[in-house]
């Protein structure tokens, strides 16, 4: 009995992994059912859906970016001080005094851009493959809200380094918000937490960035993934002949 077999026969190992390595159909089913991470998937899916060029894995890539951002974000919070002008100095210190500080910050920044790109491309993929169509309408709408949350997450993070880039981007942004018809002044006051950009603004956007928006995004992502499963997995072609009676042709199609 080898060492690995011995480890696998311990009560500790068996309490964690309830099935053997998934190389038999039975264990290939069990691994999905038993694992919290994997159970997002069905046990089996149509072969066509596995093809990379159907989805380009963009939804999954968006999630991966979010996970990288969560990990690096928590790490950055150990060093970042949301005060004026302390925020900028803590960023400087992070880049020069902290092991892997610059690297972690870079990772956070580039993953943030990556997430915006991945989410936009994911939406475009879903659109052009017609995957928004019933029964997936509501999941598409939820996806639009997730796109907005992605933009807001990225933009709130943009303010936090408190450098010239951040400060003036917020100035442009809050001036645009001020142009909201009828309630512009109130909207601007709410965004800035005062009449000008300052400590109150930074704390507001920091809280949105590290707690509120990520929680909202996580909740919506959970619902988004759950709906993908409930709506029958990712889209597959509708068998026409069976559905023709139930879903009559569009008026335009009938006309010609």
């Amino acid at each position: 009995m080898g060492l690995w077999d011995r480890i696998k026969s311990t009560r500790l190992y068996k309490s964690i992994y309830r099935n053997d390595y998934p190389d038999t159909p039975r264990n290939q089913v069990l691994v999905i059912l038993n694992s919290m991470v994997l159970h997002l998937h069905p046990v089996k899916i149509p072969k066509k859906q596995v093809r990379y060029t159907f989805t380009f894995g963009l939804g999954g890539t968006s999630l991966l970016m979010f996970l990288i951002l969560t990990l690096t974000g928590v790490w950055l919070m150990f060093y970042y001080v949301p005060s004026i002008p302390g925020a900028w100095f803590s960023m400087k210190a992070l880049q020069t005094d902290v092991y892997f500080g610059q690297f972690a910050r870079n990772l956070h920044r580039w993953a943030a851009h990556g997430m915006v790109i991945a989410v936009l491309l994911h939406m475009t993929r879903v659109f052009y493959t017609g995957s928004y169509k019933p029964p997936r309408e509501f999941n598409w709408a939820m996806g639009v809200v997730l796109l907005l949350l992605t933009f807001l997450l990225s933009f709130t993070g943009y303010l936090l380094p408190w450098d010239q880039l951040a400060y003036w981007a917020i100035t442009v942004g809050s001036n645009m918000a001020k142009a909201t018809p009828f309630i512009g002044a109130q909207v601007q006051l709410m965004l800035l937490g005062g009449y000008e950009i300052g400590q109150a603004t930074l704390i507001r956007w920091y809280t949105l960035h590290v707690i509120f928006l990520p929680l909202a995004a996580m909740l919506l992502m959970g619902m988004h993934f759950w709906r993908v499963r409930k709506d029958g997995g990712i889209s597959t072609p509708i068998p026409y002949d069976e559905d023709e009676a139930e879903f009559p042709p569009q008026p335009e199609a009938a006309a010609d």
Binding site: F54, Y128, T129, G130, S131, Y132, K133, P134, P135, R136, E137, S235, T236, P237, I238, Y240, D243, F247, Q250
Partner: peptide, 10 residues
Amino acid sequence: DSDRRGSGYW
């Protein structure tokens, strides 16, 4: 666009 047909294809 609530017609179910046309989904699942580029």
